[in-house]
């Protein structure tokens, strides 16, 4: 056993990368759930984003165009969810699961000619002086732009939800859609926007995996990250900054266990892999004292005539 082999600076820097897809998907889903909608199709939207982004950046040579199209791809898929749950008033749990099934299938059809291809590199932002600083440099100033975008998005969502009028309406819709409707807010329109935003974020998260973290395209490559994102939203008790902390914690556990293994520490891998989920359950129990956190209308169907 040689714990000194673990470099804490690199550990933190790489857990930030591991956490970013999770963070992007979770922050989108957080907004969706704040609007009172439970979309279990995150995994499906992520994988569609992963292939859309990959294909476009390979074709155009521009990773940023790829990310843009990944967001569009995720949003387009989520549009199906909008039609089902907002207009056809279908059950959200079943629609979300169907979305994941559909997304996994359509992504592998789309990706058949992209197996084994290398995407263009995204590159890192390199700031003179700052990036060269010891410790602080690798952790804060040597990443790709999308990672910073993810953090900025958390801040933006936080401001939006907390201080903007639209955020207020969104939360009102999520708490009690009948009351919001009575006040004259367009419940369906607000929710549609939230779901599209969630789809776009999930798409970005997927593309982060296929364009930066791995980077390549393979079928089923998101491998369950979308589901962890769902757990993360709960873990964060629907608060943006907690989602950031949670993403680093969840991503950190994966990276840490690999680090411990490499350092020769005998750890029961399966039991460590369980821990984020057990911690989430624990958080749920602790949070239960605070009834205000979960959107009250989460998962309920709204129709104006009700």
């Amino acid at each position: 056993m040689d714990l000194s082999a673990i470099n804490p600076v690199l550990l933190i820097a790489s857990l930030m990368v591991a956490a970013t897809p999770l963070l992007l998907a979770a922050i989108g889903e957080l907004v969706v759930e704040k609007a009172g909608v439970l979309n279990l199709g995150v995994e499906g939207m992520m994988i569609v984003g992963a292939i859309s982004g990959f294909a476009i950046s390979v074709e155009t040579g521009s990773p940023y165009l790829g990310f843009l199209c990944a967001a569009i791809g995720g949003a387009v898929l989520s549009l199906l969810f909008v039609i089902l749950t907002q207009y056809a008033l279908a059950n959200q749990v079943a629609s979300g699961l169907a979305l994941t099934l559909f997304g996994l299938g359509i992504s592998s059809l789309m990706g058949q000619s992209y197996v084994g291809i290398k995407p263009p590199a995204t590159g890192e932002i390199w700031l003179p002086i700052l990036s060269d600083l010891p410790v602080i440099g690798p952790i804060f100033f040597q990443h790709d732009p999308i990672l910073y975008f993810g953090i900025a998005l958390v801040a933006a969502v936080w401001v939006l939800l907390k201080y903007s009028r639209f955020g207020l309406i969104l939360r009102a819709v999520g708490e009690n859609h009948d009351a919001a409707h009575a006040l004259g807010y367009k419940v369906v329109r607000v929710r549609t926007l939230a779901i599209l935003f969630g789809g776009a974020c999930a798409g970005l998260g997927g593309a982060y995996i296929s364009l930066i973290r791995v980077p390549q395209w393979t079928e089923g490559m998101t491998a369950g990250v979308g589901w962890i994102a769902l757990a993360l939203v709960v873990f964060a008790s629907w608060k943006p900054w907690r989602a950031l902390i949670g993403a680093y914690l969840f991503g950190g556990i994966t990276v840490l266990q690999l680090n411990l293994q490499a350092a020769g520490v005998a750890i029961p891998v399966e039991y460590l892999a369980m821990s984020p989920y057990l911690i989430t359950i624990l958080v749920l129990v602790i949070l239960s004292a605070d009834k205000s956190s979960a959107p009250a209308a989460l998962g309920r169907i709204f129709h104006a005539s009700n």
Binding site: A5, N7, L11, S14, T218, T254, V255, A262, A263, E270
Partner: peptide, 26 residues
């Protein structure tokens, strides 16, 4: 330095494992 990932195929996890090994000097 041996790392077990408990999967035959999970690109993200494999990438993480490789990065960890490289960070630890491999």
């Amino acid at each position: 330095k041996i790392v077990w990932v408990y999967t035959w195929f999970d690109p993200a996890k494999e990438a993480d494992a490789a990065k960890v090994l490289i960070e630890q000097g491999a």
